[in-house]
Structure formats: structure tokens, C-alpha cells
């Protein structure tokens, strides 16, 4: 059989020489090795003070986006819940009443929308599945909490506030937007495309 690397060694249980039997040389060389480690640079990152930089496309806690006028984009179609491999998403839908146009973008909206952050594997499939550009993952971390119940995030946490919307520029880079033009994502209209459609319809 061909060896995978040239590092393989044939081992044989041979008699130890007298020097080896003394063990002392081996002990000293071992001690020298550990002593060298004493002065090595420590790879430890002192977490709360020192935070490692995240990648811009880090997939962390979700956000439910609002549109330009501040209405919730989600239409409770349930595609994200279907796409979710961890079955973390549950929702109930409701019909928009007249006069609520400023609150909800579509006629149907999510009355409740929950993501169980303990089930979620942060794969981002929900983001891919969403036809309304409503749900995105962001580079925020999910907090540590004390009980399991607290990890079921409802709309109060997931929907972004009108005052300070969550920026997606790091995650929605031009390349990503370009990629989303692919036919596989035809259902998934990007902001630009929507704008184009709107503009052309005028």
C-alpha cells in the first residue's frame, strides 16, 4: 500500500538501551520541551475585553426588516419555516385591517413570529428562502440567558425598531446581491430589482 505521507515510521518493540532505561535523559528532554512552552506566546483571547473580529458575513441573530416607510416586510408565507432544517421557526398569520398599511407591507402578516435560538443552527436558509426580503441574519450574537424559554425570540426582539434599523451592508455586499440575481433565487427579489420593477412599471 502506498503511504499517504512520508512521515510514517515502522515501529518495532525493541529492547531499550541502558541510557533509555535510565529514563533520566528522556525526562530532561521532556522538561526542556515544557520549559520552552513557558515562554511561548499564549494564544488565549481574554474574551470580554478582547473580541475577535467577526467576518462581515457572520451569521448571527436574525432581524425582521421593515421597508422604506417602516412597515414590516414579512407576509407570514411560512417559506422560512419550511426551509429551516432545524425547525426553529414558528409563526401565526393574521389579515391586515384597513388602516394598518403603515404597519404591515402586505395584506397578510405575521401575528406572532418565533425563532427558537437553541434550535437554530444559523445556517441562513431562512434568509435564502424569504421572498420578501424580510428576514436576515446579522453579525450580532445571541445573548447568554438563564432559562430555555428566554431563548425563544418573539417579534419584540426580532423585528427591528423604526428608530435604529439594523444595517445589512456588511452581509448584503454587492457580490451577494449580484449572486441573488441567479435564477435559483428568482423568487428572492433584491431591493435593487424591486426598485427596477417599480421604476419600469411607471
Amino acid at each position: 500500500m502506498q503511504a499517504l505521507t512520508n512521515r510514517s515510521k515502522v515501529v518495532a518493540k525493541k529492547e531499550m538501551t541502558f541510557i533509555e532505561k535510565l529514563y533520566l535523559p528522556a525526562i530532561f528532554s521532556g522538561m526542556i520541551i515544557t520549559f520552552k512552552h513557558f515562554f511561548r506566546r499564549k494564544p488565549t483571547i481574554k474574551y470580554p475585553e478582547q473580541i475577535r473580529p467577526f467576518s462581515g458575513v457572520y451569521r448571527g441573530q436574525h432581524v425582521l426588516k421593515r421597508d422604506e416607510i417602516g412597515a414590516e416586510r414579512c407576509t407570514a408565507c411560512g417559506l422560512c419555516a419550511v426551509a429551516c432544517p432545524a425547525e426553529a421557526i414558528t409563526m401565526t398569520s393574521a389579515e391586515r385591517k384597513p388602516g394598518e398599511e403603515g404597519l404591515y407591507r402586505e395584506e397578510k402578516y405575521a401575528a406572532t413570529y418565533e425563532i427558537n435560538m437553541l434550535r437554530c443552527i444559523f445556517c441562513g436558509d431562512c434568509e435564502d428562502a424569504c421572498p420578501k426580503e424580510a428576514i436576515f441574519l446579522t453579525d450580532r450574537k445571541v445573548d447568554s440567558l438563564y432559562t430555555r424559554k428566554e431563548f425563544v425570540y418573539g417579534k419584540n426582539i426580532l423585528v427591528e425598531s423604526k428608530e435604529n434599523p439594523i444595517s445589512l451592508v456588511k452581509r448584503q455586499t454587492p457580490q451577494v446581491k449580484e449572486f441573488k440575481h441567479h435564477v435559483e433565487f428568482a423568487h428572492n427579489q433584491t431591493y435593487d430589482k424591486q426598485k427596477k420593477v417599480k421604476n419600469s412599471s411607471h
Binding site: 515544557t34 520549559f35 512552552h37 513557558f38 511561548r40 499564549k42 494564544p43 488565549t44 481574554k46
Partner: peptide, 10 residues
């Protein structure tokens, strides 16, 4: 401390 340093920790 020494244990940590010998094991590349702080």
C-alpha cells in the same frame, strides 16, 4: 500559573 504557562495558557 506555572501549569498554565507550561501549557500555553495564561
Amino acid at each position: 500559573k506555572i501549569a498554565a504557562f507550561l501549557q500555553d495558557r495564561i
